[in-house]
Design a protein around this nucleic acid. Structure first.
Lengths: 254, 254
DNA sequence: CCTTGACATTAACGTAACGTAAAGGTGTAG
DNA sequence: CTACACCTTTACGTTACGTTAATGTCAAGG
């Protein structure tokens, strides 16, 4: 009733290497080692291995399994509940990306060769989603629930021409802003032109416009490191400069 | 409009290390490197990174992503379809183990402290499932569809006393078989006692008995390396010996 | 007695996609 | 002139083993 590594491995449907590894990390030590240095496993070890493989099958990592099978005081139930929670999160995530992949496939099959722009939009969408995960509550509180939703819908439904216009506007904003920052005056004519172009761009992106939202979003450009990086790459301080220009443009500052 | 690693990383919501890694593996090279050896990225690289992150989000590995974004002739559609197939398989697997975890949790919550025996049963179940994956068609062809199902049900529904009896019988079979093998005679009295005990054990496990199935299963003990390992651990050649003994027992051999 | 073959052992690198120091160069603002 | 904030490369750690490589042990057969 003693098993060598190979025998136990075959019995359990795993590899001898796995058993040596489990010995190495202290997860399952052999009952004894004979004179030749060979590992020998007995009844107890077989049972323990069965437990180990059971939990392994459930997707728990070896660290947690070790605590479960070696420490009788360990709260298995809690560990399982946490594990279940992780698994459900994983499942939701999987379902999301499955939907996206299906959408992507349909788009390509539809002959309309998902354009880079659409990929870009999808990515932006994802960025917004990420952003929401981080700043979600703030943003939704500040700009309102459906503002965010509308923005996403608008973005996705944008036509090719709209998108071209949108991209050109973006470039114009950048160029004008780059010049304006040099003047150092947020109330000056080039700064105000940049603010006006930004309003156009915003309207194009959101499908509507309000001075409050405009003032709000440029503040976010300063607060959110990602947007800050984007604008500050044009020229250091550009994000803050644009905010000041827009505050003047919307009449919130002298 | 040029980004350093940090700026681009912030823009994309990833780490500078990731960008250096992508450079290292040739996935995304910077537009140029300045005199100080600093990486600088331009418009093109930003766009490409967006594509990369889009596909990364879908769960594709960097290898495939590299082929998608660098080789315009690459069949993206096919890659996505294969990916979708993998994802669906993953999802099914996830759902299975979620169900098992939930069952395990309920069992523990029910106060009935899922006994080692139940774990053992669950594991056996899993073993049978694995076995079926490998030898499924053969087994089902040989022993019939519902025989397999009934076996599983029977196994799971076994009471604690049944289980004790089952385990004792298992031990008796082993002991008797160990003695019998020494005699070398499959038709001898101890070999026939082993065969009879094995019949008891089998009846207990399956909830029914037939000589054909009995003869069939001992043949499987010889053919399937896992069962072979289990019986041969008692004594080398025990699997084949048991088969011969059962063939005599069931009247299939002299 | 020696070989063969089938087992066993340890050591050590490889995997994917980065995180995380460590050690050092560069550039600019005070 | 010195902080400080960047940048660089090198290299080890992560998970759960797979895969050689080099070597040791044991029973059977010539």
């Amino acid at each position: 009733m003693e098993y060598t590594v190979k025998a136990l491995a075959r019995l359990a449907g795993i590899s001898p290497r796995t058993l040596r590894y489990y010995d190495e990390i202290g997860l399952l030590r052999p009952a004894r080692v004979n004179a030749a240095g060979h590992r020998l496993y007995g009844r107890e070890e077989v049972d323990k291995l069965q437990q180990i493989l059971f939990y392994r099958e459930l997707g728990l990592n070896l660290d947690r399994i070790a605590r479960i099978v070696n420490d009788p005081a360990f709260d298995v139930l809690q560990a399982l509940r946490k594990h279940l929670h992780d698994l459900l999160a994983k499942k939701r995530h999987l379902e999301k990306i499955i939907a996206t992949v299906e959408k992507t496939i349909r788009a390509q099959e539809g002959g309309l060769e998902m354009s880079d722009e659409e990929k870009f939009a999808a990515f932006k969408d994802k960025l917004l989603a990420e952003n929401e995960a981080k700043y979600g509550r703030e943003i939704r509180e500040k700009y309102g629930e459906e503002a965010v939703e509308r923005s996403n819908r608008q973005f996705r439904n944008m036509s090719q021409e709209d998108y071209e216009r949108f991209k050109n506007l973006e470039q114009e904003v950048k160029n004008t802003l780059a010049e304006a920052v040099k003047t150092g005056d947020p109330a000056g004519p080039s700064a105000q032109k940049a603010a006006a172009l930004h309003k156009e761009w915003l309207t194009c992106a959101w499908g509507h416009y309000s001075p409050e939202a405009h003032a709000g979003i440029v503040q976010m450009y300063v607060d959110d490191p990602r947007f800050a990086a984007y604008y500050d790459a044009i020229r250091p301080g550009a994000a803050a400069f644009l905010r000041d220009a827009v505050l003047v443009f919307t009449g919130r500052k002298q």
